[in-house]
Amino acid sequence: MQVNMNINGEAVSEDVEARTLLVHFIRDDVGLTGTHWGCDTSNCGTCVVLIDGEPVKSCTTLAAMASGHDITTVEGLEVDNVLDPVQEGFMQCHGLQCGFCTPGMMLTARALLNNNPNPSEEVIREAISGQICRCTGYSTIVRSIQWAAEHGTPVSVGN
């Protein structure tokens, strides 16, 4: 079947099997491999992308369901060679180690900050609680998001 969507501001149109998961579509068909896959049960969140600004697990979404929508992946966070404050924050605060969970974490953080520019630690923890990081123990991820909140300039990504 034909799916048409907008990924990081570019129109994408492909013919896919109806059962194609959005995560596989983005990775294998479109070739944007920054979105990762880590579980079979919608638990890990390494696959999170933004659909119309909302964080969604792309492993639990059919490509067909995303048709007609705006998708933001990690590759879309940097705009005109300027990093998103969330990306900066993750570097400054050592919010990543292996980097496998990082794209999903950053996108959730972006969506959170778009809705709530000054979240408390508790709110940040709640926001990322559907995602797993095996490396960092989360404190530095929380600090990274706080850094982004402090240094954030209004961004259009995901809005």
Binding site: L32, T33, H36, V74, M91, L96, G99
Partner: peptide, 17 residues
């Protein structure tokens, strides 16, 4: 700050899959 981060925060890592 880590030298590996600039590629990983841009989704430009190169994992096996």
């Amino acid at each position: 700050l880590r030298k590996e981060d600039p590629r990983l925060i841009r989704g430009m890592g190169n994992f096996v899959d």
